[in-house]
Nucleic acid binder design. Structure first.
Lengths: 350, 350
DNA sequence: CTGTTAGCGCGTTCAA
DNA sequence: TTGAACGCGCTAACAG
């Protein structure tokens, strides 16, 4: 019979006996050190060290109704998407969590209904104190549920609700997509392009509309037309097809010499289309993406892309959550972080 | 007093009262349903349903010394590596864990010492029942620690210890790298290549030597020379430089018409080198990678690569862990899974 | 088959 | 400033 190895660690009582105090004093040494005299505190601490004592998580959780665990969903990464920010984001989140004394618990869900069910289960079993969500959309069922249940959470991705004070508002951290696209457009204009097209997402995407706004406004500011555009789903083939359509210049319209894409997935599809047409990226048609995903650096030619500051996003999210759990009113319930353009050969005329 | 975030769920006693049985009976209904009569079982279950009862994780953990939590480390993904299998693997692992009633707890560590410390902390606070490790190497300190502590674990990546019965052995699941490379070589030979070079890792890598063996053996079986080779670290630039060197054919040696790479990172670097030399991938020089990372499908031309069955790996790992935790002797303590070659344009002559 | 007893390890009462 | 009791919610061990 070899069941789970039962690790008998030192308990609070063991430490108490060794330090010749009561268990409560040891507990206070951990949670309210200011309540102890310096002398006993030192004695308790050395006993803790001697025994290599760690408080038992479950006992603590059971007693205090707080687990210092944060739930986060991992999504299956589809092979046709370059948006593989997840593992970078997850690492950053784990790091930030760790710094504030939290751990991450990963929750798998295959679909939106399952996602809510998984959150509910983690919540009801008092396994987690809070959640980190990603990709909010208008009228998001997850946000509604969280608010109804009074669950602490923060979201990577802003609330697109037009009224920031509305009940739909929630704590979020996001990257300024419009600014990122604007930087790409300005860079392309600096390379001498004057007909800069957009490969964007469908109009029902708030995120896509925000990035599109960056393109439109930058073009306006530069005195350039913002007329060549496509709106497609975020898939490689969709980007490829869109590029072919735009470069075919339907009805004798203008032919773009540069294409700004709202994702690396689309941009990589565009690069494929250029190759199929015998066009050289950068020299013949400049291309930029968004996300600075690993593929951007590794493809040939390198893809110019907008880099999201994931470490900062993660840190800000964890700070929001920690503030809420600590009962502190945070100075701001959301943050919009600036991205950074990483220039590679796909956009250089050279 | 009770804040909104303190959601008091139903307890075992609540269910017991409602079903007019003792708390113990409810517990049995959950954990040993066979010990109950059909009639009481049904009554208890309906009470559970009525109250939407979920057992409290911490209480259960505290009592049973088992958390059904599995620890896994997430590593920072370096931008110059395509081996971004992590998030796919993590998702697969979360899915398999979920299917067996486990959850994943993510542990961040910046370095090997920190990794051990993080494991230790999770272990000592009785937060996790087991660990999933990745990337074992000879004389691995993590494995040694796990065994010494009697901690349950399983590893993605085999034990390279020459004697499988030695104390260094441990439960693992791995992908047959030699077979994957062999498939790539056979495919290239089928495309008419007869001078197939290898871009491998340094000789001190067991994993790299295994993949190299696949190349050597396949060439021997096909009656082809296995002489053109480079051994470099797993970085984009290293792959790029290696390709240049091999194609320069030092000392008038043979010029390879195909390059088999032991990782996608290296292969993508090779593709860059080809572009710099004005050579067309597939037509002039065929290239294959290993991992079938997202970039393989998204780069242009598409990169032929060896796909690792991550979902199967994850499932096998969780089965090993579950068996060990359940005190069941598993039929085998390790598994070597076959990979699958995904052919794309980088290796096709036309 | 079902109920009773007795904690798991910790932290919040209180009292000293 | 420190200590004693109690209970968080659940389940192993034993009755009945």
């Amino acid at each position: 019979m070899r069941g789970p190895s039962r690790h008998r660690g030192a308990t609070l009582d063991d430490v108490a006996r060794r330090a010749e105090v009561s268990a409560m004093t040891v507990s206070n040494a951990l949670n309210h050190p200011d309540r102890l005299s310096d002398e006993t505190l030192a004695r308790v601490r050395s006993a803790i060290e001697d025994l290599d004592y760690r408080p038992n998580r479950s006992a603590r959780t059971l007693r205090s109704q707080t687990s210092r665990l944060v739930g986060v969903r991992v999504e299956r990464s589809r092979q046709d998407r370059a948006a593989l920010l997840l593992d970078q984001f997850l690492h950053a989140l784990a790091e930030s969590a760790s710094g504030l004394g939290y751990h991450l618990i990963v929750c798998h869900a295959a679909g939106d209904t399952a996602e809510l069910a998984a959150y509910q289960e983690l919540r009801q079993t008092t396994a987690v104190d809070a959640f980190v969500l990603t990709g909010a959309h208008r009228d998001d069922a997850r946000m509604r549920w969280m608010r109804e249940q009074g669950v602490t959470f923060a979201c990577f991705g802003r609330s697109w609700d037009p009224d920031p004070e509305s009940p739909g508002a929630f704590p979020w951290v996001d990257v300024d997509g419009a600014a990122g696209i604007r930087a790409a457009v300005e860079h392309l204009a600096g390379q001498g392009h004057s007909e800069i097209g957009l490969v964007g997402w469908p109009a029902d995407s708030d995120l896509g509309r925000d990035r599109e706004r960056g393109w439109r406004e930058a073009c306006a500011d530069l005195g350039l037309p913002a007329r060549v555009q496509a709106h497609v789903v975020d898939e490689f083939d969709a980007g490829r097809d869109a590029a072919h359509r735009l470069l075919d210049a339907p009805r004798g319209g203008p032919v773009p010499t540069a294409l700004v894409c709202v994702s690396d997935t689309l941009a990589l599809g565009v690069l494929r289309a250029l190759s199929e047409r015998g066009l050289r990226p950068g020299r013949d048609v400049a291309v930029t993406g968004f996300d600075n995903s690993p593929s951007a650096a590794l493809t040939t030619p390198g893809l110019t892309s907008v880099d999201q500051p994931l470490a900062d996003v993660a840190a800000a999210l964890m700070r929001l959550i920690d503030a809420e759990l600590s009962g502190v009113r945070p100075s701001a319930t959301h943050a919009l972080l600036p991205p950074r353009l990483v220039v590679r050969d796909s956009s250089l005329a050279r």
